[in-house]
Design a protein around this nucleic acid. Structure first.
Lengths: 268, 268
DNA sequence: ATGTCTTTGTGAACGCGTGCACAAAGATGG
DNA sequence: CCATCTTTGTGCACGCGTTCACAAAGACAT
């Protein structure tokens, strides 16, 4: 999972559960594909398979939107596409600004999936003066100084942060002050925002770490269970005793983590 | 949320809940920052704030790993960094291949967050013969024909798919056949994989759609509640009657969605 | 019109995740 | 050695999300 809302713990937005909202785009994509193949109707079973979910879950999800199906037949594809689009707010145009036009920001600007669903890249913003004016994905990059003006002029309410981690909070604060109320954060940092502002985050590194966890478990499930080495490598806390508060790294030599696949002992 | 495992419904991997595993990288990042500042110990309250979670949740998460804290003091930063790294499998080296070196693939190859946590980009693979040999992020791109050999030679078990949606399943199948057991998928498609293979997905478009939903709700929460227009725009299903099965779009003119912010009536 | 068959919509049970609140553990000071 | 104070670890309850299973609804055939 590369995401997770930060505030708004489980607000059950308008009777529609958060988990359901997160799946609606999935259904919409599957339905759009069917629509392009001119399929008139689809059963919950078929659509669920296409979206990769359980059919019961799909039916319950749709039940939050209303009774849009016909028993014995299924769902009208075109009609459902419209209803979900409307529910997600995709029947209107959403101008978006991308802040931080590095490798990732440029890739996002070029990403076709944005424009295809009502999201329009209104502006690209970068702090590097050398970037200003250079066209990326057909749009001239603008300097951070213009941030507030750009957002105000275009009525932007969604911002994408693709800056380095160090700059993210600062950029976030400016976006929020300028009126942005929804943020998609690609920087590996926890952003703090006032109530009323939604933050979703995508962290590539975290996704890989979760995969590594499962991968490790798969690899070691035939062994003793887990580690078997006996030599304690990283030193147990040995009763911290609050040693002055200094002694920086203490005995752990290199900072960049005690890597190397040294086995460790379970300390209890 | 840009993610979600596909198979392995809720396997509670080795006593550690999936939700906890997903948060471990978050803790690890916060702890690494503290470690760099040579902070020796940290309380659950402080660390929770830094990671953006509840302190009770953090303590419960850590309790699954073992009793690594000292009551009255807190947690030893260095020790905890090591324990979490080990639990996540980050004490070993994970070679990764990236398939699809377009804008996104190139951005991923350049992304520093990969290398910083034990993930090493072993190879970049693309189907375009013109790309072969061209260096991206200091690594020469190789052709898809070499895929199986590359994976076998380097003992790669984690693959990243950054191809267009149309090619994703095919690439996925080849990766799995070649021995890959963990996949991070950036293509907007549902991948089907055999049991034992983990898939996590990151979908930029879906994240934006979820934000749009909440944004729309915020915008319209002072109005009548929701829509108020009376003219039904998209046509209700009017009893499908299973009309032959032809009449493709029927009356809905343009395919690419009935956009424009037409208000709609709630059909019941 | 009646019966059969398909598929939806949902009531109910279950399990996971979250958060509260507190007892146990250990540090610290006298 | 005892008292006090801090902070962990966790039992418990609650709520959300998932899944099952089935009744109701409508299509379709005769």
């Amino acid at each position: 999972m590369a995401t997770g809302r930060t505030h708004r713990p489980a607000t059950r937005s308008r009777g529609i559960p958060e988990a359901t909202v997160a799946r609606l785009p999935l259904y919409l994509r599957a339905l759009t594909a069917l629509s392009e193949r001119s399929v008139p109707t689809v059963s919950s079973e078929e659509l669920a398979t296409a979206a990769g979910v359980n059919s019961a879950k799909l039916r319950k999800d749709f039940s939050y939107l209303g009774s849009y199906g016909t028993r014995g037949v299924g769902y009208d594809v075109e009609y459902l596409v419209y209803q979900i689009s409307r529910e997600l707010g995709l029947t209107q145009d959403w101008p978006v600004v991308i802040v931080g036009i590095g490798n990732l920001g440029a890739a996002l600007a070029n990403y076709g999936g944005f424009a295809s669903r009502g999201f329009r890249v209104a502006a690209l913003i970068d702090a590097d003066p050398a970037m200003a004016g250079k066209p990326v994905a057909g749009i001239a990059v603008q300097h951070t100084d213009e941030l507030e003006k750009i957002i105000d002029d275009n009525g932007v309410s969604i911002g994408v942060i693709a800056t380095p981690a160090g700059a993210a909070q600062q950029v976030c604060d400016r976006l929020v002050a300028a009126g942005i109320t929804s943020i998609l954060n690609f920087a590996p940092t926890v952003l703090s925002v006032p109530d009323g502002v939604d933050v979703r985050k995508v962290d590539l590194s975290i996704e890989l770490q979760i995969l590594a966890f499962h991968e490790q478990r798969k690899a070691g499930e035939d062994s003793t269970g887990h580690e078997e080495g006996a030599d304690a490598v990283p030193q147990p806390p040995v009763a911290p005793h609050r040693t002055a508060a200094g002694s920086p790294g203490a005995d752990s030599s290199g900072r960049q983590g005690p890597d190397g696949d040294v086995p460790a002992v379970m300390p209890a």
